[in-house]
């Protein structure tokens, strides 16, 4: 076997359940897979199948009950909170369906927000404007999120995720709140990012278009991985 680069994400038998006692419901039931550097993965599945939960566990925003989670060489279950925070700060970008911009900050300040937690961060304004330029919003730096359209907001959120030049981008239904044209632009942007900059992407999505550009589609059902057949895609992706 050829020497392969270490995987960006390595999951082994990850389980997770919510609730206690009789109300305890399993959400992840032994999930295992690897994501290699430079891959663009689509994570699909019916609503409630555990996609967001899995993505959050990968990003260290949630914890699993059992199993192994290794992200960018860090065993997130054993690592300290500070180590996980540092990894999120330096190497991971998040894009959420709900944008999660801070309304009291300007667009530029939203983009440079991660630098608040980086020691000796320099050239914030320049780097922030550069990130905005990449998503085509250079002119809106001094606006407030409240003055932007949904698509613009999501692009600001993407600029924020890209601000620290992350190795890994975790996106939870990034086009869920956008119209199909805007959604397409965002997807194209992701593909370009993957192709040009080699950023590894894991995108949770219902859209067939995303799965079509992905190098690999991981499908989930009831907290487990299932065969990535067209059937499953159809079930997870809903109407095309």
């Amino acid at each position: 076997m050829a020497d392969k680069a270490a995987p960006v994400i390595r999951l082994r038998d990850v389980t997770k359940s919510y609730g206690v006692g009789s109300a305890k419901t399993p959400v992840l039931r032994g999930v295992s897979f690897d994501v290699n550097p430079g891959e663009l993965i689509a994570l699909v599945g019916q609503s409630g199948s555990g996609k967001s939960t899995l993505l959050n566990i990968i990003g260290g925003l949630d914890t699993c009950d059992a199993g192994e989670v290794e992200v960018l060489g860090l065993d997130t279950r054993k690592a300290t909170d500070a180590a996980r925070a540092k990894m999120r700060n330096e190497s991971i970008g998040f894009v959420f369906q709900a944008f999660n911009l801070l309304d009291h900050l300007t667009v530029l300040d939203n983009v440079t927000l991660p630098a608040s937690f980086t020691p000796d961060a320099k050239d914030l304004e320049t780097r922030g404007r550069e990130a905005l330029r990449r998503v085509g919003l250079a002119d809106l730096a001094k606006r407030r999120p409240g003055e932007l359209s949904g698509g613009q907001k999501q692009r600001v959120a993407i600029a924020r995720a890209l601000f620290g030049n992350p190795k890994l981008l975790l996106c939870d239904e990034p086009t869920g709140n956008l119209d199909s044209q805007t959604g397409k632009e965002v997807i194209d942007f992701f593909r370009e990012l993957n192709a040009k900059d080699g950023v590894t992407l894991v995108i949770v999505t219902h859209e067939r278009r995303v799965s079509s550009v992905a190098q690999r589609v991981i499908a989930m059902k009831d907290g487990m991985l299932v065969e990535t057949t067209d059937e499953a895609l159809a079930a997870g992706g809903g109407p095309a």
Binding site: L61, N89, N100, L102, S116, F117
Partner: peptide, 16 residues
């Protein structure tokens, strides 16, 4: 809590 959760997502520690 959403705002505080976001701070964590972009790199804030619990201490922060």
């Amino acid at each position: 809590r959403r705002e505080l959760g976001l701070l964590r997502a972009v790199g804030a520690t619990q201490t922060d």
